[in-house]
């Protein structure tokens, strides 16, 4: 099976709140000086791809969009884990684009890669959490689509997948070609690369394609959508204590949770 895995580079989402900053003028997240990592679920998607390859053979290509200068080194990890090739769509604006726009560029890149049976993405990115790339790619590539997939089994020209759902799980039979977005599961904890694979990864092919070479695809969902501002909600640094008897405290807390739309 030929599999393409889309990986996104994000600012380490595990940094403490104090290190999280937004440039007020542009609404961009401050990336400078912060470690960049592969977005959480994307590594799970890669692991699913590698497991499918381990079982049934084929080829795994990783695809990413972003400024090539900062991307290629960090993403050697994906090659070390077992991906065969890497395609970087060099796009200095990459981190600032909305999901729909990114998906259109990725779809163009996938068409240029050519053959594929399966495209995998993380179920959501650690930054904008739009959850749109997989469904949009599926439409753009005329492929089947299932999101929030926690397990995948190949079965005779189709896939049997397990989708996380509000009411539990769905077992879904999917035809190929398909685009799946992958959620974390104990079965897809990203593997630790072996040293020989880390060393071998240095010789694996990395293709860098300028974003300008990607033919503008129709269906850019982000056109006509503009980010006005991104703000960090003002946080009262001091804890607000709820006073009274236990029952009063409990009632006050419940009310506050409701006011905060947390119920």
């Amino acid at each position: 099976m030929d599999i393409i895995v889309c990986l996104k580079q994000v600012v380490d989402p595990e940094l403490p709140q104090t290190e999280f900053a937004i440039e007020p003028a542009t609404g961009r997240q401050v990336r400078e000086g912060r470690p960049l990592v592969i977005s959480t679920y994307d590594e799970n998607a890669l692991e699913v791809a590698l497991q499918l390859k381990d079982r049934g053979g084929g080829k795994v290509t990783v695809l990413t969009l972003g400024p090539q200068a900062v991307i290629s080194d960090a993403f050697r990890l994906a090659l070390a884990m077992g991906a065969d090739e890497m395609v970087v769509v060099d796009d200095p604006r990459g981190p600032d684009r909305l999901g729909g726009e990114k998906a259109a560029i990725l779809a163009a890149a996938i068409r240029r890669i050519g053959r594929f049976d399966l495209v995998l993405t993380g179920c959501e990115s650690a930054d904008w959490t739009e959850r749109v790339v997989a469904p949009v790619l599926a439409e753009a590539l005329s492929a089947a689509c299932v999101t929030f997939v926690s397990r995948v089994e190949a079965a005779d020209g189709t896939l049997m997948v397990r989708r996380m759902a509000d009411e539990g799980f769905h077992r879904v039979e999917v035809r190929l070609p398909a685009v799946l977005s992958v959620a974390s599961d104990e079965s897809n904890r990203p593997r630790l690369p072996k040293l020989k694979d880390i060393l071998a990864a240095k010789r694996k092919p990395v293709h860098v394609w300028p974003v300008a070479d990607m033919p503008a695809a129709p269906g850019d969902l982000a056109a006509g959508v503009e980010v006005r501002e991104v703000v960090i909600p003002q946080r009262t640094t001091r804890c607000e204590f709820l006073e009274g008897e236990s029952a009063e405290q409990a009632a006050a807390l419940a009310q506050r949770l409701r006011d905060l739309k947390l119920l």
């Binding site: 940094l15 403490p16 290190e19 470690p35």
Partner: peptide
């Protein structure tokens, strides 16, 4: 911890950058 070391130059996940 090792992954953190590679990504963040220190082994403490969730620690600050300064």
């Amino acid at each position: 911890a090792l992954r953190s070391l590679e990504a963040r130059t220190h082994p403490f996940r969730g620690a600050g950058i300064s």
